[in-house]
Design a protein around this nucleic acid. Sequence first.
DNA 1: ATGGCTTGCACCGCAAGA
Length: 286
Amino acid sequence: MQAAFLPGLRNPPAAGPPRRFPYNGRMKIASWNVNSLKVRLPQLTQWLAAAQPDIVALQETKLEDARFPMDDLAAAGYRAVFAGQKTYNGVALLARADALGDFEDVVTDIPGLDDPQRRILAATVGGLRVVDLYVVNGKAVGDEKYAYKLHWLARVREFLARELERHPKLVVLGDFNICPDDRDVYDPQAWGEDILCSPPERAALQAITALGLHDSFRLFQPEAGHFSWWDYRQAAFRRNMGLRIDLILIGEALKSAATAAAIDREPRRWERPSDHTPVMLELDIR
DNA sequence: ATGGCTTGCACCGCAAGA
């Protein structure tokens, strides 16, 4: 069991002189579905201090914007933009204040899709165009939420096609709620073609990657059995009964800049963990 | 096998997640 969080760990240790904008060097970008930012703020700040990511995309903040913990994250050294709502959904982007400039050209809605659910947040930062997605879960194949999921994904694909035209250095990351293929499922036979693995969902993801976006984790790790989510029940984490549904997609223009990809399982071992764990990508931007 | 956890909200159980 992990000890209680160290009270002094809110502010990350200074790691050399501040890096100046525009960014020039190695950048770490991460995605984490925190499953309630209110509950997970101590875990998030501890993880920021340990992992020192430059850009972080959060999902399921479950907070109205007025309740977003901007001050705590500023104290941890991060700027933030966010699009939240009460109880459900909610996305946010963080960027290291000492390394990166302000967020620009912030978008919180898919053009042409009237949707009160806060599931998308796009911004330009550090020379990258970053799109944070919390893809619809879908509940079950055939459910009305499943139809909403497929419709939402089709509209996102159109949006991303236009984003790529203007921003070749595109990063699309978040909780996709789709297992790209059977390597991303702990028991593909048991899961079958159920929700998160159904052929139409996988086809919708492939239609997005076909725009010229690479699943960055697979540039480095071809093996099965690497997951980013484990059910809270059945001791699923201990038994590695998981799924890889949290992805970092990068445009062709960034492919040669990618130097490493990782899933950080450590926060899943902490007290009161999110059911998702952070996924990371290192880019060498020069 | 739909339950098992965990969250938020609002009650004293519910919906939703994946």
